[in-house]
């Protein structure tokens, strides 16, 4: 059970949060102009790597805000959390 530092509310138990998959996948502004393959790239393709990964999380049982997290999936270490729209603090 992680201890997650919500960028708005502070440290909270993982049970207050829900995970929302890979971060920094921007919804295309003009989907209708994309080919099937381009749209599929946005819709289906996710990295799911072992190691440092950028993820979206929602403080669903708290402030209901979405934010981003940098987490190492091999040891569950959370390297950073940052608000939506902010640049990742780590490469």
């Amino acid at each position: 059970m992680f201890l997650i530092n919500c960028p708005y509310c502070g440290e909270r138990d993982q049970s207050e949060f829900s995970a929302g998959g890979e971060a920094h996948i921007v919804r295309p502004k003009q989907p209708t102009e994309l080919s099937d393959n381009q749209w599929a790239e946005f819709l289906f393709m996710r990295k799911n790597i072992k190691g440092v990964q950028f993820e979206r999380w929602n403080h669903s049982h708290g402030c209901r805000k979405w934010f981003n997290m940098v987490r190492d999936t091999s040891n569950d270490k959370i390297h950073a959390v940052y608000k939506m729209g902010e640049k990742p603090p780590i490469k």
């Binding site: 921007v26 979206r56 805000k65 979405w66 939506m84």
Partner: peptide, 8 residues
Amino acid sequence: LEDYLQTE
């Protein structure tokens, strides 16, 4: 819906 409003 909150997700779309906050992120997209």
